[in-house]
């Protein structure tokens, strides 16, 4: 890969980040809703504020957050602050900054999504590849079928089904939250770590079962195409054994488009993660977002969305940088 390609990709990344920032800036302003006023209106509905003082307070806060400046100036300030990784402060958990909220919750989300996505990608692709491989034993090929049928069920629904059957009925797993109530987090204690893992099992299973079918299905389709390729045929003519053909000629080639598919699926991965965290009440970016939606904490909503968008776009470009390592054909383009 040449410097030119790298530069082009990075410029693309910057364009994406800039577009996402612009969208998150302008959409809320089109609706002409003042976040400060919304927040206080919500507070006053729950009682506690005298309406007389409210306008003054709102005006003061508007100045504080720069909401009284012309829109264009706000926009420039906004883009500048993003470039400084400054996403503002939370109304709800003032004076916590959005960045602080993100750094606190990110490890949870990252770990859960990384583990489940990698597992799902590996298992799904293996199952799909085997399902399309005519020489695999029938029972092995049949394993793929239930996963293909599950492919239409999103992880959020899977989560509710699992909660009902495994946690509620069979009592094999907790009904939610990050660790047992009353336990004091202590990352040096194995008992605590096990407790956390125990609480993560069901969410992880929901994410896994809800996403694996997609890989099985696309890999099966890819596998059928690759099998018809001349080089697989010639490999058989060479007298290579089944496992060698499967691994070096069939799987390696069928996986290439799947890697691109992984990059494209990252948006869906985080979307599912956000929902799952909210259903299970796990600490994480998704839960921060869900709570912010519930309490009209706008800067947190925009900040988290922007952060996730940037993260996904960056990971996507990163996967594209990895791709040439797998496919020699694009290496010297």
């Amino acid at each position: 890969m040449t410097i030119q390609v790298i530069v082009r990709r990075l410029l693309f990344l910057i364009t994406v980040v800039w577009s996402a920032s612009t969208i998150t800036f302008f959409i809320p302003r089109i609706s002409a809703k003042n976040p400060v006023r919304e927040r206080f209106a919500a507070l006053s509905r729950s009682g506690g504020f005298a309406p007389a003082d409210m306008e003054k307070i709102i005006a003061a806060y508007n100045t504080k957050f720069g909401l009284d400046k012309p829109v264009l100036e706000q926009y420039v300030d906004y883009i500048a602050s993003i470039a400084r990784f400054d996403l503002g402060v939370s109304f709800n958990l003032y004076p916590k900054t959005v960045i602080e909220l993100i750094t606190e919750s990110l490890p949870w989300t990252f770990t859960l999504l990384l583990v489940t996505t990698i597992l799902s990608f590996i298992l799904g692709n293996l199952l799909g590849a085997v399902a399309a491989w005519p020489r695999a034993p029938q029972w092995l090929r049949a394993i793929a079928t239930p996963f293909i049928l599950l492919q239409g069920v999103p992880p959020a629904i899977m989560a509710i089904l699992l909660l009902f059957f495994i946690a509620f009925r069979l009592k094999l797993a907790p009904l939610g939250s990050a660790y047992s109530t009353g336990v004091i987090p202590d990352w040096s204690s194995p008992a605590f770590i096990w407790d956390v893992v125990h609480h993560q099992l069901l969410p992880a299973l929901a994410l896994l079962l809800g996403s694996i079918g997609g890989w099985v299905l696309s890999m099966r389709g890819m596998g059928i195409t690759i099998q018809g390729e001349d080089y697989v045929n010639f490999a058989e003519h060479k007298g290579l054994s089944g496992p060698v053909i499967f691994k070096d000629y069939y799987l390696r080639n069928a996986l290439l488009p799947q890697v691109t598919g992984l990059a494209l699926a990252l948006g869906t991965v985080v979307t599912n993660g956000v929902i799952i965290e909210n259903i299970f009440g796990l600490p994480g970016l998704g839960r921060v977002l869900g709570a912010a939606i519930g309490s009209n904490d706008f800067l947190v909503i925009y900040g988290v969305v922007l952060f996730i968008t940037i993260a996904v776009a960056t990971l996507m470009v990163f996967v594209e940088f990895l791709y040439p390592l797998l496919d020699p054909r694009v290496r010297n383009e």
Binding site: F234, H237, N253, L256
Partner: peptide, 20 residues
């Protein structure tokens, strides 16, 4: 195969594995 009887395909097309 290959040791007693060998097959030479239309190699110009797609008979070689692109990633090996």
């Amino acid at each position: 195969r290959l040791s007693k009887i060998a097959y030479i395909p239309q190699g110009a097309m797609n008979s070689l594995n692109p990633v090996l």
